[in-house]
């Protein structure tokens, strides 16, 4: 996901004061990544450890049923929010079935 368009100088409050709470969601941290976690839906066993450990809340549970090549059926899938994922690699480390690959960011 690309960076959102940022406001011009004259639309910002003076003194870099933050007027509304809970605005970290708007903060683009995706460009911090050097390595990108890529989830393999086939290997993933939906244990949600990645979802628990992610410090940036970048794992989303989406209601998309998925059937693996071996026939296992899941009612939901997991998606990574690359706007916020900083590429810390904690999910890669914690995944018990090595379902998350850590791939170098290339542009």
């Amino acid at each position: 996901m690309a960076e959102k368009e940022l406001p011009p100088y004259n639309k910002l409050p003076p003194g870099a004061v933050v007027l509304e709470p809970g605005n970290m969601a708007e903060r683009y941290t995706g460009d911090w990544r050097i390595f990108r976690p890529v989830l393999n839906q086939d290997k993933c066993i939906r244990c949600l450890l990645c979802w628990v450990f992610c410090p940036d809340d970048a794992f989303e549970i989406v209601e998309e049923p998925y059937t693996t090549k071996t026939g296992r059926r899941y009612k939901f899938s997991l998606k990574i929010d690359y706007y916020h994922c900083k590429g810390c690699g904690i999910c890669v480390e914690e995944c018990p079935v090595n379902a998350i690959d850590f791939v170098e960011e290339v542009k």
Binding site: L6, L12, G15, A16, V17, V18, Y28
Partner: peptide, 11 residues
């Protein structure tokens, strides 16, 4: 409100 924020190179 928050005073004394950090502003990265984009801000």
């Amino acid at each position: 409100v928050t005073f004394g924020t950090i502003a990265d190179p984009n801000w």
